[in-house]
Simulated assay, not measured.
Amino acid sequence: MSQGGPRVSAYGSRTAVAAAAVSLVVSLAACGNAGESADSGGNASGKGGFTIGVVFGHIQVARWETFDRPLIEKKLKELCEDCTVEYANAGGDVATQQQQVDTLITKGVKVLILSALDFRSLRSSVETAHDADVPVVAYDGLVEGPISAHVSFDNERVGKLQGEALLRAMGDKADGCQIVMMNGPQTTPTGVAFKKGALSVLEGKVKIGKTYDIPGWRPGTAHTNMVGAIAALGADNIDGVYAANDSLASGVISALKAAGIEPLPPVTGQDADLTAVQRIVTGEQYMSVYKPFKPEADAAAQMAVALGRGEKLDDIAETTVDTPTTKDIPAVLLNPIPVTVDNLKDTVVKDGVYTIDQICTPKFESACKEAGLTQ
């Protein structure tokens, strides 16, 4: 299906069809079960194990170590009992990530799952992997070079959901409102897509008083820039803040609180970090975007095992994407979900991402009762 499905540009992702996502989850749920056939991609095929490299870029964004890594490693073990995993995290440094990729190739990994910090700067590492016959699965964001597969969410859709939520939060007064945009880095297709999606909703609807692109998703930089925006625009002239993810939202909110702004204007986010969910409960952050981690991690693991065994991805990838260097990359694109205080129970709690006890610690007991999370 990867060759026959719809093509998606790296700079203009099409919305993933919900049925495709459901189909993916169903197919993944069947993987690794006892009695599966030799062609199902599971360890029942009897094929020997090999080493899979997993290279992430961020430590300050909580999701990577808390969810993505353990979920990928668990699924890899289910699909290939004899496979081993070599893990590395670059901690936000591109040069370190380049070195980590090169080191894993030298150590003999058979396939790589890579979440690239910079989609251009990692191109040489991807080319090195290709020359060594090591397929690369681009995880959560694209990267230039001859990658073999991609799994992520519809990232323009993420930006649109954030922009729509911000307009809703400002209500009838949205027309003529002034906002600040705290975008992610524009050196990655994900950051570019988030911003593009948000602007498609916000432009013409509100005045964008200040806009910033934050390298490395650094909350400290977001805080500093928000302090500057408050000084330039005035504390009473900021009606909302588009923050591309929860880390940036934390920096924005700390600056707003330090300036004594009350009530806080609505602030968006993304990733549904636990601290962000707690800020949503207290009303400090208006919303986040929940990207179900398990389907993404499962798809990446399934792709990696299939590629490591020399198998095609036709039964896994529902579509294809293009980058400036590579066309028709087999891809899985999943649907993001907006999260506000009204649907926390039906999203992150229902899916088991967090328990009520994890969210509603004594510090948040009163806010949780008011939000209807506890009695």
Score class of each variant (00 low, 15 high):
M1L: 14
V8Y: 11
A10Y: 15
V26R: 15
L28H: 10
A30R: 12
N33H: 13
S40C: 08
N43R: 15
N43Y: 09
I52Y: 09
V55P: 12
Q60D: 12
F67T: 13
L71D: 08
E73P: 02
L79T: 06
V94W: 04
Q98D: 08
T106L: 09
G108R: 08
K110T: 11
V111S: 11
A116D: 08
D118P: 04
F119T: 09
H130Y: 14
P135Q: 12
G141E: 10
P146D: 01
S152R: 00
G159L: 07
L166D: 07
R168C: 10
R168G: 15
M170V: 03
D172E: 15
A174F: 05
G176C: 04
V192M: 10
F194S: 04
K196H: 09
A198F: 03
K205Y: 01
K207E: 10
D213V: 04
G216Y: 02
G220D: 15
T221C: 05
A235Y: 07
D239G: 15
L248A: 11
K257D: 07
K257H: 04
E262K: 15
V281Y: 12
K291F: 01
K291W: 00
K291I: 03
A297F: 08
L307R: 03
T319G: 07
T325H: 07
T326C: 06
T340D: 11
T340P: 10
D342Y: 09
I356A: 10
I359S: 00
P362C: 11
